[in-house]
Simulated assay, not measured.
Amino acid sequence: MHRTDITPKAQTHICPASGQAAEHVLMYLVRDTRGCHLDGLDQLNRYPATPFCCITWMLEGEVSLLQQGKTKREQRLPQIFVAGCQSQYGVSMNLGDRHSFMAVFYSDAFHALFELDLTTVQDRFVDAMGVLNPSGLGLLQAVAQADSHADRCLLIESYVAQNSSDLFNSPWSRLRKMGQNLSLRLSCSLLGVGARQVQRRVRKEAGLPLLGLSRLWRAKRSHSQVLLDLEQGHIPNWTEHASAMGYADQSHLIRDCKEVSGRSPQQLLNDAKKNESDWIYRL
């Protein structure tokens, strides 16, 4: 498992899914702040809008949702919770030390694996025990009781292998790989249905309206490219980056970034370098 140190104490471990599971699971993520004595703003977790569905196991500690977009929230989250696709950025707060394990699924795979209508969890954080199908409930318990994070990854990948037969020829995987070129006409062609049915199916099976998914898939690729450029020692040129990522211009990139994260690209880059609460943007 690859390790990324966020501070000398707080840690995040990330591991991409392997083999066949990588078509359906983006990654596994462990966040551990035990013994770090974080307080104040360092206890916050700032996250972007996302086209993915996640299951989080709070192995130790609790977390409370504080904000979605510009709307204030006050929701203490369950020990095992599902986060549906998020059309807005948000903020949560750790209640004391945190030790959590998260599996990040492509939304269409999540729908198929757990037989869940994604409109019921869009922009929501819900008790996983109340929404997954019977086989999914067994997985939740097994992962919670596993002895190690490596075992948790193996349990999820075994579950995916046993339940992914309907995903082999899914048009969603092709659509999500196209991302920025996604259109209603193309979606109708690949799904074999009319425009109205596409709009209904995309929310149920992929989590968000078609244009919202396309925008967030492009934002994910943009974020990944910025991280790669930084690793290679290149300072982003936002005009060139916008063109390469399929934005109309730099202003388009800035508007989209503000909608996804609440900040401009440069603000986000500056904050992620110094703020513990922006740990997820460094992944």
Rank of each mutant, 00 (worst) to 15 (best):
A17R: 06
N45Q: 09
P134T: 04
N275G: 07
L269I: 12
L116P: 01
M93P: 01
M245A: 08
L268K: 02
C53K: 00
L269F: 11
L190V: 13
D127I: 01
I254S: 11
D147H: 04
Q20S: 12
Q122M: 04
M93T: 10
L95P: 14
D123Q: 07
L140S: 11
Y247E: 12
Q20P: 15
T12C: 10
N275F: 08
S165G: 07
F110A: 02
M245H: 11
Q43M: 10
L269A: 13
L216P: 15
T56S: 09
P8G: 09
Q145G: 07
W279I: 00
A142P: 10
L213R: 11
H234F: 03
W217A: 03
Q86R: 11
V25N: 12
G138T: 14
D39S: 15
G212Y: 03
A248N: 04
C54W: 05
F52T: 03
N163W: 00
C53E: 03
L140M: 04
Q180L: 06
L132G: 05
E231I: 06
K70P: 13
C188S: 15
E231F: 09
S251V: 08
R31E: 08
N45Y: 12
W57F: 01
C153A: 12
G192L: 01
T239S: 14
H149W: 10
G96F: 08
I280M: 05
L190H: 15
F110W: 14
C15S: 14
T50H: 14
A17M: 04
T119E: 11
A109E: 03
V82R: 00
H241E: 07
W238Y: 15
T120E: 11
T239L: 02
V82N: 03
E62T: 15
C188Y: 09
W217I: 07
L113T: 00
K204V: 05
S187R: 07
G40W: 03
S189K: 12
L283A: 00
W57A: 08
P209N: 13
K220Y: 12
R215Y: 01
D5V: 07
H111D: 01
I6W: 05
L65M: 08
V226N: 12
L186C: 02
V193R: 04
F81S: 13
